[in-house]
């Protein structure tokens, strides 16, 4: 893929944002000082589009983007799973226990990152999640080991 094609992708990325801002009910409402609420937002979006156009037309547009070849479907799946896992750990650690969720998360990610031995994954994820648990508990955060199981660190 070249820089120019990359810039087209960026343009595609900007379209929903542009639609959101320009069709919003706040963008064109004037404030006390006469400035529209969305004035600065819209100006900055304009800059974004101008510089994407500069990428398309400017020097180096035909240069190749080297890393982009490494994008692959299994990798994308891993990323999606990682994102879901991160959200799950954050929102559910109180309900399901921090150490439990975090070690599951770590096990999955270390498997994704190329760790293959099940024993290695198990030991690693348990040690790291316990260490993180101890560290944050000592700092005064309210974390649990398993659902409902808590140790007071006060």
């Amino acid at each position: 893929m070249t820089n120019r094609q990359g810039a087209y992708c960026l343009l595609l990325f900007m379209v929903p944002i542009l639609i959101y801002v320009f069709s919003s009910d706040w963008a064109f409402v004037p404030m006390r000082d006469g400035v529209l609420i969305g004035a600065f937002t819209m100006m900055y979006l304009g800059f974004c589009v101008i510089f994407i156009l500069a990428m398309i037309a400017g020097p180096g547009a035909n240069e190749l983007l080297e890393d982009i070849g490494e994008i692959n479907t299994p990798g994308l799946v891993k990323i999606v799973l990682f994102l879901l896992g991160a959200v799950a750990v954050t929102f559910w650690h109180e309900a399901y226990g921090f150490v439990m969720l975090c070690s599951l998360f770590l096990a999955a990610v270390s498997w994704f990152a190329g760790q293959t031995s099940p024993v290695g994954i198990l030991i690693y994820s348990l040690i790291v999640s316990t260490a993180l648990y101890l560290l944050f508990s000592l700092l005064g955060f309210d974390l649990s080991i398993a659902p409902g199981l808590k140790v007071e660190f006060l």
Binding site: I17, I37, T41, Y44, F47, C48, M55, G60
Partner: peptide, 30 residues
């Protein structure tokens, strides 16, 4: 190396910076 890319990055930063509330009217925007 490419000025346009750096400037796009800066412009996107400007845009993200407007999320929150309007500094004068204190009403939410973006």
């Amino acid at each position: 190396r490419r000025l346009a890319k750096g400037m796009f990055s800066a412009a996107l930063g400007l845009y993200i910076g407007t999320m929150g509330s309007d500094p004068i009217g204190l009403v939410p925007r973006n």
